[in-house]
Design a protein around this nucleic acid. Sequence first.
DNA 1: AAAAAAC
Length: 714
Amino acid sequence: MAQNPSRPHGARRSDDRASARPGSRSPGHRGHRPAQDGDARPKRRWTSDDREHREQRSQGASRRPNWIPPEERKRDDRRGPVFRTRGGAQGGRDHQRDDRVHRGERPRGFDRARDEHQGRARFGAERDERRGERRFDRDDRRFDRDDRPQQRRFADRGGDRRFDRDDRPRRSFDERGGDRRPERDDRPRRGFDDRAPRGERRFDRDERPQRGFRDRDERGGDRRPEREDRPRRGFDDRAPRGERRFDRDERPQRGFRDRDDRAGDRRPQREERPRRSFDDRPQRRDSTYYPSTDAKPFAPKEDVVLDRLDATATSAADVEGVSFADLGLGAGIAGALKSMGAPSPFPIQAATIPDVIAGRDVLGRGRTGSGKTIAFGAPIVELLLRNRPERRELGRPPRALILAPTRELAQQINHTVMGLGRAVGIFTTVIVGGVKQDSQVESLRRGVDILIGTPGRIEDLVEQRKLNLGAVEIAVVDEADHMCELGFLEPVQRILRQTRPGSQKLLFSATLDAEVQTIVREFLPEPAVHEVAGEEQSTSTIDHQVLVVDRYDKDAVLEQIVANPGRIIVFTRTRAYAERLAEQFSDAGIAAVSLHGDLTQAKRNRSLEKLKRGKVDVLVATDVAARGIHIDDVALVVQADPPDEYKTYLHRAGRTGRAGNAGRVVTVIAPARRKRTQQLLDRAEIEAPMIPAVPGDDLLDTLTTAPTAEPAAE
DNA sequence: AAAAAAC
């Protein structure tokens, strides 16, 4: 989901750039480097020397995964020597110490390179130079690495790369603002009458044996609908789903779910709820068709697009001329928003803010990059402000809580909300794992108004009685559908149960679907449901392609892809592969870092920071970075492994093309995967050509350069 | 089967 529409950062960044100086500004800082223009050089890629150090550094730290997917095993063998070297007798602490030393001695010119890179030079002529350098590196390394065939091929190809990046003007901030409104009011809005009465779906949850989460643990099992021996799925659950299949085509665009049977497993709906239906598909009506016996034919092996939530749609037109003040936000907050680069509300914000301020429970769905963080962050600050106690007491318990699925996302949300709160004297803090508790406990002790964090550490502190959630009046679950998946659901429930009884709850996600119903049922008695009109994929500013690549060519193709200019995020299915790819790219002279759960939090932060600051252009990540993380100007998202479910596709893809900017997504698949991928795309309602590719294809060199067509609606 | 989330 999209926290910060890129404007806040974008706006500021260009200013910073103008005065950008290498290193720290304060002479006392250890990173201080006086500005001297003598050594100005374009951004450089890692030299073989840097790489060597890097390799050494990683030796001690890198953990050999105990499980490697079959398709990767082969590769590992091929790279045997590399792994052996690392895993060998010299791995270990020595190298970790080494690590620290080398880290201090960042390659000279690195910072400068970054600054230039971030500055106007980013898409400028220096690129060519940088390219040259990169190629050079590559050639360079050929000597010591001729054991890697694909590299050779690649190096030879360097010459014909194009550098037409320059003609793509960097978007100015204001342009972006304009861009931002992807909305089209001409889109047939969903009529209320379309909605099948909820009453039809009678699922009596209660008689359903409580599903063991253990089962779910082997997700594999669960996901494999083909098992018809599953006793636990209620037929009733399945029926609608099966039915849905027939109408898939005419289904209005966004499906929310592809989590195959997960859906079914998740307790669907209780009809006793007067609440609005979760489904608005007209076909639903016929749901008298309850093929209670035909579990098998449906074998929802593909996705079950979970019921859509029945929502009130807000379009850009509805928001025209509306200001944050109109929505009920005070001048202080509106001012803060403005200074953060959000002068006027986005549709999702306009839709949810009034309801949140009115104290209602809210379900909000807005596509990636549409500004959801502010949609809940701003009204929360407003509410707390309105009922502010006479004085801020030391150690006052938090009155608002925001839950996020990853630490990075929690940090990011905090960044935004803190910006809003600070303007009016509302304090926030982040409570996440992976770092010491001390400072967190300390800020709690001082007293905080809004708590933002991940479930684990929050529960931890609660158990230690260092955190009391009893005063929480508003709780938000960001990426709510994800937070309702196995492993997250229960902690989230436990946490929400500790909030003040009757406290207000908000659920947000770009792919909000009925997966959240368990939470909704328990915590949101009568929620307002909001979404934004005109968000079907066809209006997206993201261009999608699928590259069909032979397994043996995959790494070479990926390497060629990431050699493109511009910021690139590569997603992998496993941590090990993320690590390996990042290394491969680095070895090839393309500065890349990894981001996944096997890294220490410090490294995770560092990796993300490096990408944000332009120290590297390539981030290889697992799905830890799939949701919510905002990075400016990601030119390309590469899916080195196709996602399992369409929601994951949408979230990964959403790292680019934020706030109406153009973006591109390239998914690399094996030939055998075509059919499955097509199904997934269909579910996501994304149209993407399937293009066979082999290393060396020109196509692979222009993935970030060929401008993406903007949809007419923009 | 993977990934994320506490120590």
